[in-house]
Design a protein around this nucleic acid. Structure first.
Lengths: 335, 335
DNA sequence: CTGTTAGCGCCTTCAT
DNA sequence: ATGAAGGCGCTAACAG
């Protein structure tokens, strides 16, 4: 593989001249430039960024670290961060942590070893360690999706607690009185937020929940939990699920029990996938502006990298969207 | 950010000793090692792989280049390649090309600049340019998904042409006589393969197709095409779609026209997504072992990187799986 | 407009 | 068991 020296020798110039042809062509005479360029083509020379990096101390790479790649969010995040990064001249190194905090730190360490210039993190939890580690290395970082109360860091997120309350209020408005919550793991902040919103809405209406469960954020988790909830003595007429996987599992369970959605049971959810991937039912629920969140987080990072900002952590809270689709209806038997 | 020299100075040793502590701890006396290690912790020193790379000429990074990240395949590929790479001590740099050949070459160039050690490519088409470029740089490469007749390269793929024939035969066996093909873009090999298999099956039965169309591999493409096909004078009783997006679009179109799947029209497909993301109908169709393909492709690459193999390109053709689900039934009116 | 010198962080080699 | 010298590919800074 040809180096800058090979090109220089063959073109009869100094390596520096080749470097100039590559990075600042106007500073080289057209004649020399032409000769160098033809040698570059001839030798199929591709500049080695490793050398540049060592010299300039900038890799022009930012990393995107995502908890769970199966989440439909992840794809939009990869796309958005990639686009925003490219606009700033950066490449994105993608890493996923399989929703393990230990893994998250391992990955971050590997990224620091590779001297990425900055990190966009969609974290597993909102414990402060990961951000602390990255910032301790002097690297800028943006966080997507969680409040990070213990860190001084740039964050873009939504208030899904309030959204959960609104969502539950909508069901109450339809006349539902027996509601169950199928939330996510207790140690995930957003799961707690959503549970809290649900509870607050019920409290506001003077009702208590028929059931409240914590399932993993998976189709099977939702399925199992929904099976038991829908088989209980007091059947709920509406389910609030904390994410789309749980909702899909719940819909499967309902169908298997011979219940129709929404006639027999209404289901609402968060993080609804695009209509592309779920055909029926298309869930009523809360939509987060995932792409915009990822884009803003990346732009905040690029700001810091460009030296345009170096103040304290900023927090952007974006509004969610509430969409009514096919999975909700008034309860059958109004009490 | 601390360097090896900072650590060395503070520990009162030579940089070389620090290097040994990191890479070959046993060659350092326990006392020195302990001191160096405590300084490493104190200074939060993280080795700079850029330096290592420049010296050793190995980045320990392989790149995964995927045409379209929205394809459910992509996620499995990212996961499989990542796992296989990790087992070999490599990190994966992920790039997507948005199904543009020009983009593909640009991305590959950027990856060569970063001196990745090798590339796993799920290409846009099977033209030889991309592979030629990479191999011309002396980098090993594996290809997933396409036959590459013009390249001497490692390939893992499935024979979806034969699979398409089998799939069509299944519909014929159910008694269908009016079949339509909704295939993908004509310039994509796999789309052509699938069309050919469809045609061969019909020819074998002495039937000709009611309609054959080329739509983009998207939900909307499938939707639009299916609308016109299902509205035609001669309605097909079964649709063979060339991928899952087209199938979902077709199912939407059918539903909108008041037709039930499979009672009024059967739909079969390729590249079926996991049952997680499509609830109803769960399509009858051909499943490719995507994860296994990606894993094998990565292992072939690692073989070459390890110097365990350096012969001519190998081709592995894996069998597909045929799964019958809810989207197929005999036609209503047997002729 | 072009070349020279030096050094980014690390590790291979050879010496001690 | 430890250290010193040198160089991987590139470019900033300073000649000329």
């Amino acid at each position: 593989m040809a180096t800058i020296r090979d090109v220089a020798d063959r073109a009869g110039v100094a390596p520096m001249t080749v470097s100039r042809v590559l990075n600042n062509p106007d500073s080289v005479s057209p004649k020399t430039r032409a000769r160098v360029e033809s040698v570059i083509a001839e030798l199929k020379y591709v500049p080695n960024m490793i050398g540049q990096t060592l010299r300039t101390n900038r890799t022009m790479v930012i990393a995107l670290v995502v908890a769970e790649i199966s989440n439909p969010f992840a794809i939009q995040q990869i796309r958005s961060v990639g686009d925003a990064a490219r606009r700033g001249g950066y490449t994105v190194l993608f890493a996923h942590t399989e929703a393990s905090e230990e893994n998250e730190l391992t990955q971050l360490r590997a990224l620091v070893q590779r001297r990425v210039d900055g990190i966009v993190l969609a974290p597993v939890t909102n414990r402060p360690d990961s951000v602390d580690f990255v910032q301790g290395q002097g690297l800028p970082i943006s966080v997507i999706g969680y409040p990070m109360p213990e860190n001084d860091v740039d964050v873009v997120r939504c208030d899904t607690g309030t959204a959960s309350r609104d969502l539950t209020d909508y069901l109450l408005g339809l006349g539902h009185e027996r509601l169950a919550m199928l939330s996510g793991p207790r140690d995930i902040v957003t799961a707690r937020e959503r549970t809290d919103g649900f509870v607050a809405a019920l409290a506001g209406a003077g009702i208590s929940a028929v059931a409240m469960h914590n399932a993993p954020f998976t189709v099977d988790g939702g399925y199992q939990t929904a099976l038991s909830v829908l088989n209980a003595r007091i059947r709920p007429t509406a389910l609030v699920t904390a994410n789309n996987f749980i909702a899909i599992g719940a819909a499967k369970a309902a169908r298997e029990l011979g219940m129709r959605v929404p006639e027999d049971v209404s289901i609402v959810t968060f993080d609804n996938a695009r209509s592309d991937s779920v055909l029926d039912p298309f869930f009523t629920g809360i939509i987060q502006p995932v792409a915009e969140m990822a884009e803003l987080a990346t732009e905040m990072l690029l700001d810091r990298l460009a030296g345009d900002y170096d103040g304290p952590g900023r927090e952007i809270v974006l509004p969610t969207r509430f969409e009514v689709h096919d999975s909700t209806a008034p309860p059958r038997e109004m009490s």
